[in-house]
Amino acid sequence: MSKGTIIITGASAGLGAEMARQFAALGYDLGLSARRTDRLEALREQIVSAHPDRRVVLKALDVTDDEAVFRVFEEIAADFGTVDRVIVNAGLGKGAALGKGRYDANRQTAVTNFLGALAQAEAAMKIFRAQSRGHLVMISSMSALRGMRKAMTVYAATKAGVAAIAEGLRSERVPGLDVSVIYPGYIRSEMNEHVRQKTRFMVDTEVGVRSMVAAIEKRKVKAYVPAWPWVPIGFAMKRLPLSVVRKLS
């Protein structure tokens, strides 16, 4: 018997793919979306092989296509009859220092990470309001806690915006709605595979995502993950002078 249905965007690799594996192991049916459907197909085969009772629906989706976001979410909801949780995970890590001639990369990150997240939140909330229940999970970043420098400036700003959307929805106190914001620290993923392997505090994907999944299952309002060392680092980041914070980016 299914524990419920979860939509995960950006599920073809990295944190999204690993969340899919771990939530399937917990007993959830999944609606997975991403641009790269070949990877989604391989992921579904892996999940169903390990958990034959799980149902996995795949949809091609570019989250910068507003109409597609609403259509795909509605199709998944129709396939399953209900959606218990939506994890807004799809994101992009391109970026450059402002004024360095890479506005195209910064804009692409802003559109994907913020406008794409807004479209996903709108589509999810349309379903949840109709159901009078649901759990919206926004994947932010520890970088959202303060302004970051150079190539991280726009990325951090988009992730702060994602967290602000979640807080606004919590403030609205929509009946039956739970909202969680997850702030991952350094978790190995496709997005940061170019980062040197010995980055301090970097953890493997499976380990980091296990912390994310645990926080999501508890429906935490806010979670810095993994808790060690990111809870104390998060506390410090909000209070340290910018001259110290800049060394973290």
Rank of each mutant, 00 (worst) to 15 (best):
M1Y: 07
A164K: 01
Q108A: 15
V111W: 01
N106I: 14
A24Q: 06
A215S: 10
S12Y: 00
M1G: 13
W230Y: 15
G14K: 13
G16N: 04
A90T: 00
A130S: 02
M191D: 09
S33F: 01
S249M: 10
K159L: 06
G176V: 11
R246V: 15
T82N: 03
Y183M: 08
R36I: 03
D66R: 15
E190T: 15
A78D: 11
D29C: 05
L15E: 10
K100C: 10
G4D: 08
T82K: 08
G95D: 06
V174M: 09
M191L: 15
D65I: 10
S211Y: 07
P229F: 05
A121F: 04
V154T: 15
V213R: 04
G14V: 12
Y103H: 06
E190Y: 02
R55I: 12
I233W: 00
K222Q: 14
A227M: 08
A105P: 00
G91W: 00
L32F: 07
P241E: 14
T205D: 05
A144W: 01
S171N: 13
V57P: 01
I87L: 05
R219I: 10
S211H: 12
R54I: 11
K59H: 13
T199G: 07
V86K: 03
R210S: 14
T9I: 07
T158M: 01
